[in-house]
């Protein structure tokens, strides 16, 4: 499904601030894989997701999605195949537009946007039903501006938007990190439901080791712009947080590893 081949990204090359964020990374995802991504600050997790989304051009390597080379494709074109939810709840929605307008925008991802009316009555009914599944009461507030929603409500809405037109790949970049624990758990529940119901291939970055173990069928750990650990299937199910911590210090070989990881 997704194949990253020797991808590399250096920020600020040729300056004293030069930093290799992704260092010859290889990764292959099968269709339906639900992969959690962990690693310390600066390990390259977000950069990896942004590289796939096309936020910046790569220095080397290729990205193939569903047999199609998307390495040089501009961000807005790739979006046709991708669903994205960001860490910052402000980033995934248009605050000055209504809930239903945001959904209508997402429903047209990858389609030509012409002079037809931006949202149809049939769509509204459909969105009402979908919003109902979030159980946040948003189905009664469809013409409310998104700026009035809480962070958790926005992330849930962004998730819905990301999966509305089923993407080939769902990219979740620490999408619960800015939420309180209760809301975060709820958004993760919604995530699990949406991913499994639709069989979405998913990459989910998280800072939370317990979440990384509890969710998905595969776990990768990143360090210094590379994948240093890849655990799937039964091995992942049996994994515990202390084991994962031990593995991390072993593979990363960095003294301050423990400080860098958030222990939760």
């Amino acid at each position: 499904m997704l194949e990253l081949n020797q991808i590399r990204k250096v920020f600020h090359p040729g300056t004293v601030n030069a930093r290799t964020a992704i260092d010859g990374l290889d990764l292959k995802l099968e269709k339906g894989d639900y992969v959690t991504v962990i690693g310390g600050n600066g390990a390259g997790k977000s950069t990896l997701l942004n590289a796939i989304a096309g936020t910046f051009p790569l220095d080397a390597g290729t990205i193939t999605l569903d047999g199609r080379n998307i390495t040089g494709m501009p961000e807005y074109k790739r979006a046709a195949f991708l669903g994205r939810v960001f860490q910052d709840p402000m980033m995934g929605t248009a605050p000055t537009m209504m809930i239903e307008e945001n959904l209508a925008l997402a429903a047209r991802r990858g389609k030509f946007r012409g002079l037809k009316w931006g949202i149809s009555g049939k769509e509204r009914a459909e969105y009402k039903k979908l919003l109902g599944t979030l159980e946040l009461g948003l189905e009664e507030r469809m013409s409310v501006k998104v700026s009035l929603l809480s962070g958790g409500q926005r992330q849930a809405l962004t998730l819905l938007m990301a999966s509305l037109k089923l993407p080939k790949l769902l990219l979740l970049d620490e999408h619960t990190a800015a939420l309180d624990p209760v809301t975060a758990a709820k958004v993760l529940d919604i995530t699990d439901r949406i991913v499994t119901e639709n069989g979405l291939t998913t990459l989910m970055v998280t800072h939370n080791m317990r979440d990384a173990i509890a969710h998905g069928n595969r776990l990768i750990m990143m360090d210094a712009g590379r994948v240093v650990l890849d655990i799937a299937g039964e091995d992942k199910k049996k994994l515990t947080v202390p084991e994962l911590m031990a593995l991390f210090s072993k593979v990363s070989a960095a003294d301050e590893a423990n400080d860098k990881m958030l222990l939760t």
């Binding site: 961000e75 605050p95 990858g110």
Partner: peptide, 10 residues
């Protein structure tokens, strides 16, 4: 309203 969101929505 939100350039990032717009790009992410294609």
């Amino acid at each position: 309203a939100n350039r990032n969101m717009a790009k992410a929505q294609g």
